[in-house]
Amino acid sequence: MFEARLISATILKKILDAIKDLLNEGTFDCSDSGIQLQAMDNSHVSLVSLTLRSDGFDKFRCDRNISMGMNLGSMAKILKCANNDDTVTIKAQDNADTVTFMFESPNHEKVSDYEMKLMNLDQEHLGIPETDYSCVVRMPSMEFARICRDLAQFSESMLICCTKEGVKFSASGDVGSANVKLAQTSSVDKEEEAVSIEMQEPVTLTFACRYLNAFTKASPLSGQVQLSMSADVPLVVEYRIQDLGHIRYYLAPKIED
């Protein structure tokens, strides 16, 4: 028996919004430590890794490890039926071929359940090595989203250059060129507004704007985003989900042809 309850459906809606542009389907691996999903986009350029810890749920029960392959478009249809303040419970029997989403209104007067067929997905799991990154940038997630949106107008690719002075995002194309420089903040009123840079070695890498923009769909999950970079390895874009876990996107860099 698997059962996981969240007090507010909003968080699940936001998580789905953060992955459904990149992935058509995904396998949710459930164990007593929580729920994990790891999947590559169709082009095998990026990898999404979602971790939701069992202690972050209002209720969590997982008697036997189960893997539930879900069509994320279908899951989105179901979650649309939940109000933001509804409690959501995800339930499945051991070896079941369906999963049930149950939504309860705050006053418990309306209860709805939606059963969805599970899919058998033959997904490859990749081992991600522990890496000490040359540069780790933390910045407001809305600022990162804004920069990705703005620079995507100029080119398919964006250069991210990180030094101890700051981080610079650049794009150039037929229209002209764009550069956005962010310096480390010295003092801020709110921690969420801070830009911080931990640098061992300066790094310059090129990435596809389309994927970066897809990652920024996770912005509503967290006030801050963390970018981890080293030469010639994938960028990690991480959004922490408060008290519940995180979503990490890995993006392969572009290289000179």
Binding site: V45, P129, P234, K254
Partner: peptide, 14 residues
């Protein structure tokens, strides 16, 4: 001209 690399070339299959 830049070439997009594949994510699988960086990670090992489990």
């Amino acid at each position: 001209k830049t070439k997009q690399q594949n994510i699988m070339s960086f990670f090992t299959k489990k």
